[in-house]
């Protein structure tokens, strides 16, 4: 049940001098089960793009298909769509509102009109999935630490059992440890639930270790769309639009530039380590 974007355009404030084209002729196919990194600079249209995927924004031109149906159709079930395509916004902890964590996670499933038993089961599973222990369930969400709040907020979306999970800058404002934990959590969600994941970020370092496909956005257009290694081979073009290859790739390419015979297309620390050890053993 792929998502298909067909010539999607989105223009804000059309007809005034504040007219901005957030998306320009975007064509994408997002197949099931893929782990995708959506990269772009601030204002590149990545947030607009993901909001089109669950119908929060309507394209001003073109169509978005989910399960082969145009989601802009009048009779399309928007609620169903939003439970199928879960969207976790930036700073999701700012949207917590209930008196305790558990009820807040219940909010999503409750809106789907499920039975009380089912709602609570889903909330429990979701909280377990994101690694929040029972002791936090009945605390006020405002008493949790930053990383825990973020987990609770992500659980609030997972509890709707989406088949596609989109996370908009899930690591924004977290310390390195929190960042690592959230990224590992997302990887675990992908592996255990087998769902499609779209990870939105402006940092290649965030996504290099995890994703199998990278979509680079620039000025509302799809700039690159390929597997990580192929995307990172466009080092100069990426730098021109204000992005960078992952730090390890940068280091290795500089080594190669100094004349060391190393592979400069590596993207993870593990691969870089193997390359460097190989070089060390040869000497």
């Amino acid at each position: 049940m792929p998502i298909i974007l067909n010539h999607v355009n989105c223009i804000y404030e059309a007809g005034t001098n504040m007219e901005v084209a957030a998306l320009k002729d975007v064509n994408l196919v997002i197949p099931d089960g893929q782990f995708i990194g959506l990269i772009g600079h601030t204002g590149s249209g990545k947030s607009s793009l993901v909001q089109h995927l669950n119908g929060l924004m309507k394209p001003t031109g073109g169509e978005v298909y989910f399960d082969g149906q145009d989601i802009a159709d009048e009779d399309y079930d928007k609620k169903k769509l939003r439970s199928d395509v879960g969207l976790v916004f930036q700073y999701p902890e700012h949207q917590l509102f209930e008196a305790d964590v558990f009820s807040d996670v219940c909010f999503g499933p409750k809106n789907l009109g499920l039975s009380k038993k089912e709602i609570e089961l889903r909330a429990y599973e979701a909280l377990k999935m994101v690694g929040l222990e029972d002791e936090y369930f009945y605390q006020s969400p405002f008493d949790l630490s930053g990383g825990q709040k973020r987990r609770a907020a992500i659980a609030g979306v997972i509890a709707m059992k989406p088949r596609v999970l989109i996370l908009d800058e899930p690591t924004a404002g977290l310390d390195p440890k929190g960042r690592e934990e959230i990224l590992n959590l997302i990887k675990k969600l992908h592996e255990e639930m087998g769902i499609t994941i779209i990870l939105v970020s402006h940092s290649m370092d965030d996504v290099a270790d995890y994703v199998e496909r990278i979509i680079v956005m620039n000025h509302g257009e799809v700039f690159l769309d390929d597997e990580p290694k192929a995307v990172f081979s466009h080092k100069e073009e990426l730098e021109k639009i204000g992005l960078a290859v992952p730090t390890v790739t940068e280091i290795m390419s500089r080594c190669a530039g100094k004349g060391f015979p190393v592979d400069d297309t590596v993207t993870t620390i593990e691969e870089a380590k193997a390359e460097l050890l190989k070089l060390y053993k040869k000497r």
Partner: peptide, 26 residues
């Protein structure tokens, strides 16, 4: 915030008056 809660299935523009007022809490 409206968008984030809508992404969790909240509805702000439908239902009875009481429902609408309740929908404002989140």
């Amino acid at each position: 915030i409206m968008k984030a809660q809508m992404a969790r299935g909240a509805e702000f523009d439908s239902g009875s008056l009481i429902k609408k007022v309740k929908a404002l809490v989140p």
